[in-house]
Design a protein around this nucleic acid. Sequence first.
DNA 1: AATTTATACAACCGCCACGCG
DNA 2: ACGCGTGGCGGTTGTATAAAT
Length: 317
Amino acid sequence: MGRAPCCDKNNVKRGPWSPEEDSKLKSYIEQNGTGGNWIALPPKIGLNRCGKSCRLRWLNYLRPNIKHGGFSEEEDRIICSLYISIGSRWSIIAAQLPGRTDNDIKNYWNTRLKKKLFGKQRQKQGSRKGKEINSNMVISNNNNNNQFPCWPELPILQPIPYSNDEPRFNDHSSIRKLLIKLGGKFSDEDQPINEATNPQYPMDNSLLMQPIYQNIPINMISSAPIDNVLGNAQYNMDRAASSFTAELEHMIQNNQQKLDGLEFLYEDYMLIDKSASTSGGNLDWESMNPFVLPLPPINDEGFQQGVIFQENNTTPQ
DNA sequence: AATTTATACAACCGCCACGCG
DNA sequence: ACGCGTGGCGGTTGTATAAAT
């Protein structure tokens, strides 16, 4: 026997909201607030709706200062950067874009941005096609911590000019901090966050610190909780890994692959090393994107072993 | 003009974490 | 410690509209 539903789906209205319903919900919340209980809200207002539906309608459409459509290039870049960095954590991405909802960004990514990025990608795939390897983290054994997952180096970016003072991912340090908190590091110098280094992060060390990455599929690596600033939510790397699109994984896996269509993401970021772009032709993904590092052979079990992290990477801040 | 296909986005579904009793 | 109710989240579906045939 399953758990009871939050409402009787047969006796509540579903589907698009009418202007009258919107008006009722909006005016009530503006005057009285939600009362901290969405489930109890509809009867108070006289709405024959599920509480969850009311919450969604308010958060995604009725609440003040919501922007719809008209995503700017800057917003595109932020979404792309964060998606590449942390995957489909839409609520976190939305938190960096004032006025945008996670639902909006998710829809925008799925319907437009993804196509904008991958639409012109060649069909050609490398020999590793089909291997479900998460390449967002790489393993370095060139350190004193045995096997520990490392995030690949971020592209070298110029600071993104923002028009206000809201906390944003406006430089590498923010993204670095986030990714480190998620359970990895960029180099030997980074201290992975754990109870020893920061008692505020009571993470599951049995997952994070296990020294057996060498023999587990990369996409099974787990992560630490994210901190309170980002919503006090706990995430694990399994979820993050599984949320990355296959397209992105395949692109990053194969460092020989050229990526038509991704130029827009990088040209505006003004990659410091533009020497490779002077030919006028397509850039090699490897030369264009520091995310892509040479990968060691992957055996038939889908395991990935050995040094991946490049020795000539710049030392992170 | 009618039909089919593609696109955009609102809304729903189900799972999971958290707080409270 | 446990169970329950709820909020929050990401994935998916449904529907209206536009574009193509």
